[in-house]
């Protein structure tokens, strides 16, 4: 179990007040809330992009909050996907492998596998700025996973896609998680994401966790 404690942040007209939150070791823990409820702030704080001196985040005996963003070894997919536009899809994915010093041999093998599962073969050598929304989404997911993360963090990962692509993306993510059972922390406002992906749902309102429910 991964435990987040004392995530307290105060801004001018808004605050985050999370005393304790437990993330599952397997499956998807979803942080579900409306726009402005504080989801993204929580997400960015866990990534280490917002300073939060009170935060304690213990993951399998290790204090992640004491590590720099890079050292936390998180796989992250932002809402805007944020692929490096000047690189090809493959270069984007391999960038993450190289940054984590994963050997070329292992990285190539993982890339092959991810390409197959995420059906990326036909656009791997295309520049990122030429990819469609659905293709970019898959590349962002592969980039997050190839770095062998402790935990996968997803920030509204399907919100930029149209309905059909969202369905497809969820299916791909599900099949991927069957292959690689790593913990996932996903923030979303979409109830369909919850219905189809979430194992645990933590509801956030006005910066506070108001309910935690495990899905059947």
């Amino acid at each position: 179990m991964s435990t987040i404690k004392n995530l307290f942040l105060k801004f001018e007209e808004f605050s985050i007040d999370i005393g304790e939150l437990e993330l599952l070791d397997q499956g998807v823990t979803a942080l579900w809330g409306a726009s402005g409820s504080g989801k993204t702030t929580v997400f960015r704080t866990l990534c280490g992009l917002i300073d939060c001196p009170s935060l304690e985040w213990e993951f399998q005996g290790e204090r992640l909050d004491q590590l720099s963003p890079g050292e936390r070894r998180l796989g992250v997919v932002f809402q805007s996907l944020d692929l490096f536009p000047h690189m090809t899809a493959k270069d984007n994915i391999m960038f993450a492998a190289k940054a984590r010093s994963i050997s070329q041999e292992v990285a190539n093998k993982d890339l092959e596998h991810l390409s197959e599962v995420l059906e990326m073969n036909r656009f791997l050598n295309r520049k990122a700025h030429l990819l469609s929304g659905g293709e970019s989404q898959r590349v962002a997911l592969a980039r997050a996973l190839i770095s062998q993360p402790r935990i996968l963090l997803l920030d509204e990962p399907f919100s930029a896609l149209d309905r059909d692509l969202r369905l497809e993306a969820r299916r791909l993510l599900n099949s991927l998680l069957q292959e690689k059972p790593i913990p996932v922390f996903m923030i979303t406002h979409d109830s369909e994401d919850i219905d189809e992906l979430a194992t645990r749902v933590c509801r956030i309102e006005m910066g506070q966790i108001t309910s935690v429910n495990d899905q059947a």
Binding site: C47, G70, V76, F78, D82, F95, A96, A99, S147
Partner: peptide, 23 residues
Amino acid sequence: RQREVAVLLGASDAEVFKRIIFP
């Protein structure tokens, strides 16, 4: 934003500059 992502992926400052910022 790209720099943030690269840092989260574990890239060093030099790597971020060489492969993301400079080009």
